[in-house]
């Protein structure tokens, strides 16, 4: 391992390289906008900010623990069955997360329904295990998990912000534009209507597209040239 041979001194916990593990996935190497992984759940569970937050936390937890476990086992995992081992690790963690949600945040787990189970198929997780945790020590692996989990969560929350605001007129369940009940108040009183399309998956795709557009026009080096 290159890191061990070059520096005999103990690396500080938050060296420049380790910090980059957290900050890179937030912008320059964002799992959703740059690597285009984990798109499916970003499209589906972003109708409400609450759901997006819990989904992000769940993925974050699975990613950190998955990275840690696989990194700890990296020297004993037989190469021939490493994908199977990763899958088993991820699947067990997801089941545990699902069970915990059902026991302690029942309402949210009902709304996330199948998507918690589908964290297993979230490409970000298998991608990070295979690309990073399998070849790195536990601590950098944890940081990598935090970074990518946050990068994923950031996008989810941004998407959910616009979808909930314009689709339901609320944020975290709080009415922003006034009440749209039998007697409309606020914006609804002067004829404003919620946009039903914003509640459906296609609108997330548009928002992700706009995000990528803004991101790349601000950081020219991210634009692919070929």
């Amino acid at each position: 391992m290159s890191t061990e041979t070059v520096e005999k001194e103990k690396e500080p916990l938050f060296s420049k390289k380790n910090k980059a593990l957290i900050t890179d996935p937030l912008s320059d190497n964002n799992p959703i906008t740059i690597q285009v992984l984990g798109i499916c759940s970003a499209l589906a569970v972003t109708v409400k900010m609450n759901n997006a937050l819990v989904m992000s936390l769940s993925v974050l937890a699975v990613l950190i623990l998955g990275n840690l476990v696989v990194s700890l086992m990296r020297n004993v995992i037989p190469g021939r069955i490493r994908i199977i081992v990763q899958l088993v690790v991820v699947a067990s963690l997801v089941i545990i997360v699902d069970q915990v949600l059902k026991a302690y945040v029942y309402d949210v787990s009902k709304q996330l329904s199948v998507f918690v189970g589908l964290i297993i198929t979230n490409c970000i997780i298998m991608g990070r295990l295979e690309a990073f945790a399998l070849g790195n020590k536990p601590w950098p692996s944890i940081l990598d998990g935090i970074g990518n989990g946050l990068g994923y969560g950031l996008l989810l929350v941004v998407i959910a912000f616009f979808k909930e605001l314009f689709g339901s007129g609320t944020l975290m369940g709080i009415e922003i534009f006034g009440s749209n009940g039998a007697e409309p108040t606020g914006l609804y009183a002067i004829g404003y209507e919620n946009d039903g399309l914003m509640l459906l998956p296609p609108s997330s795709l548009v928002i992700v597209g706009i995000y990528i557009w803004i991101q790349r026009s601000r950081k020219k080096h991210l634009i692919e040239t070929h």
């Binding site: 004993v76 995992i77 037989p78 190469g79 021939r80 069955i81 199977i84 081992v85 067990s92 069970q99």
Partner: peptide, 29 residues
């Protein structure tokens, strides 16, 4: 690490450990 014996042994241990953990969590919750 690449011998069949090791791979089979590893798999068995992994399945037993994972199964025990999941069963424990399910029962506790």
């Amino acid at each position: 690490k690449e011998s069949n014996g090791y791979v089979i042994g590893f798999s068995i241990v992994m399945v037993v450990v994972v199964g025990a953990i999941l069963a424990g969590v399910a029962m506790a919750l």
